Computed example of a mutant assay.
Amino acid sequence: MKQLTFKQFWELSEIYTAPLNLFIILLGYGIAKFQFNSRPSPEFFLFILIIVMFHITVNVFNHYMDYQNASDENYKQQTNIIGRDHLDLRFVRNFYLANLVVSFLLGLLLVWRTNWVIGILGVIGFYIGLFYSYGRRPLNSLPIAEALTGTASGFFITVVSYYLAVYQHPVVTAAMVGKVFLISLPLVLMMFNNLLANNTCDLEEDIENHRKTLVYYLGKPLAVKVLLGVYVFSFIWLAVLVFAGLAPWTILFLLLLFPKNWQSLKKYRALQDKKTTFPIVLKAMSAIMVLYPLLYFVGTLFY
């Protein structure tokens, strides 16, 4: 096989999840606008392109490594897109390598146009993205996978976006970065919950493939309780941000989502299944990941 159909590209690259990254970037810019009334720079848009390219790279690479490392033949031949559609391994490898090279070169251009801080953050981001599924003990086989990936997606992307909007400001302090972390925490928690729910549904498959995620140590019942507790805390945290003056009042509209989403999550609490109840969790968490940055940005227009 020498080319991908659109359907195969759609599943292999998981490009349909890329818009979530764009909303995370929007939050970073929204924070900069809220604090300094900053405007987007050419470097900001270059960063968007890098994130999309690297998003494709990481997802293709993860599918490739999951296929290579799988011990379960049923997973390799029936679940993984590479085995199920008989994709040529060499082609898949070359595809992600080409995307990696392009995103890396664009990253170097971004560092050249900004400064070394972006370079350090970029190296950390590239490391987490690539070693999530690579190596003798890939990150996705460890109990830190959920927290590390949630932080990398929810905070790192946000803080780079924020930094690109304010790096020409006279002083960028650790306190400013700390505030960005506090503001990005709802995104970090939602990403954590998505991965926790995914790994809860995949527990038996992960054990078969020697992946010991957080769920392996918690057990399914406790993992579900953690997910629900994190979800409740995230709504409480929204109110804290507003009262602390770190976010505009418009994000409080998110509280209207809680009753309906909490009711729908009862189905997941009763049954953790990848096909039937995991999409419920994904929908509930993604709603916050999309609406929170939007409402934050809209709120900046009133200041």
Rank of each mutant, 00 (worst) to 15 (best):
K2L: 10
W10C: 03
W10H: 12
E14Y: 06
Y16Q: 14
Y16E: 04
Y16G: 03
T17M: 13
P19M: 09
L20Y: 01
L22S: 05
L22F: 15
F23C: 10
L26K: 06
L26S: 05
L26Q: 03
G28S: 01
Y29P: 00
Q35E: 07
F36Q: 10
S38I: 08
P42L: 14
I48T: 12
L49P: 00
I50G: 03
M53G: 01
I56T: 10
N59M: 09
V60L: 06
Y64P: 06
Y64K: 15
M65L: 13
D66Y: 03
Y67H: 12
Q68E: 11
Q68M: 14
D72Q: 11
K76A: 13
K76D: 04
Q78L: 14
N80M: 12
V92F: 14
V92P: 02
Y96M: 12
L97Y: 13
L105C: 13
R113Q: 13
W116C: 02
G125R: 06
I128L: 13
L130I: 15
F131C: 01
F131I: 04
G135A: 10
R136M: 07
L139W: 04
S141C: 12
L142G: 00
I144P: 00
I144C: 10
E146N: 11
A147I: 15
G150T: 06
F155S: 01
T158P: 01
V159W: 01
V159R: 01
V160K: 03
Y163Q: 02
L164V: 10
L164Y: 07
A165W: 01
Y167P: 03
H169P: 03
V172A: 05
V172P: 01
T173G: 11
M176I: 13
F181T: 04
N194G: 10
N194Y: 08
A197H: 03
N198I: 13
E208F: 07
H210A: 09
K212A: 06
K212F: 15
Y217I: 07
L218T: 06
P221F: 11
L227Q: 05
V232G: 00
L241N: 02
P248R: 07
P248H: 07
L255T: 11
L255I: 14
L255H: 11
S264H: 14
K266P: 00
K267M: 14
Y268L: 14
Q272K: 08
D273R: 15
K274Y: 08
I280D: 00
K283E: 00
I288T: 08
I288N: 03
L294R: 07
F297Y: 14
T300K: 05
L301F: 15
F302C: 03
Y303G: 09
